[in-house]
């Protein structure tokens, strides 16, 4: 069985460029020693009023987006701090994929390790999806990692890039540490040679 079967979901648009990981999960929530419970503080400073009530105009709080598992983000999503708490918080909230025109390097790498797919699309597709969601905020997309395809609400199929290695790991549930441990002898050899 695939660890990453195709799924269909509504989409929350958060069309801001350069969203940094300090916004995704503010630093004051990093004083944890586990990975759980971060979802409730996802985008905390944009999501809640000072009294802790949800801000009604923030995209994640809108009733039409409840339960959406896909985030549509602006350029360069996840820049700044390397905190893996960012994908933990996104996953904790229930997101399984982020669609954007570009991602920051460390964020993308952290995301894939936590089963959060970064789907890179070109500007035209990004724009098309924005327009479709404006027309119908409850419209859905279908994401299939195996065929690397994203189906837009109008049925259009987009192929998105994923490197083969990460794809295999995600589909087969292989963890990277397990892969790395297979190289133990080579690592030992490398250390011996350099001594």
């Amino acid at each position: 069985m695939s660890h990453f079967p195709p799924y269909t979901s509504r989409v929350v648009p958060l069309l801001i460029n350069d969203v940094d990981t300090d916004q995704i999960i503010p630093a004051r929530f990093l004083k944890v020693t586990d990975k759980l419970g971060l979802g409730q503080n996802l985008f905390a400073d944009w999501r809640y009023n000072a009294d802790g009530s949800p801000k009604s105009d923030f995209m994640l709080n809108k009733p039409e987006h409840a339960g959406a598992e896909v985030l549509l983000a602006g350029d360069n999503f996840g820049c700044g701090s390397s905190r893996e708490h960012a994908p933990w918080a996104l996953r904790g909230f229930g997101f399984r994929a982020v669609i954007s025109t570009s991602f920051a390097d460390i964020f993308r790498s952290n995301a894939l390790k936590n089963g959060l797919l970064s789907v890179t699309v070109d500007v035209a597709v990004h724009h098309e999806l924005c327009v479709l969601l404006e027309e119908n905020p409850k419209a859905t997309v279908t994401i299939d990692l195996a065929s690397q395809s994203l189906a837009l609400p109008n049925g259009k199929q987009i192929i998105f890039p994923v490197d083969n290695f990460s794809k295999t790991c995600l589909l087969n549930g292989v963890d990277e540490l397990g892969y790395l441990m297979q190289f133990t002898d080579r690592i030992f050899e490398f250390e011996t040679l350099r001594r």
Binding site: E84, K113, N114
Partner: peptide
Amino acid sequence: GIGTSEVEHVLATQC
């Protein structure tokens, strides 16, 4: 800089 999963990788394998 690396993420926490990678911190674990380096602690375990130095790679």
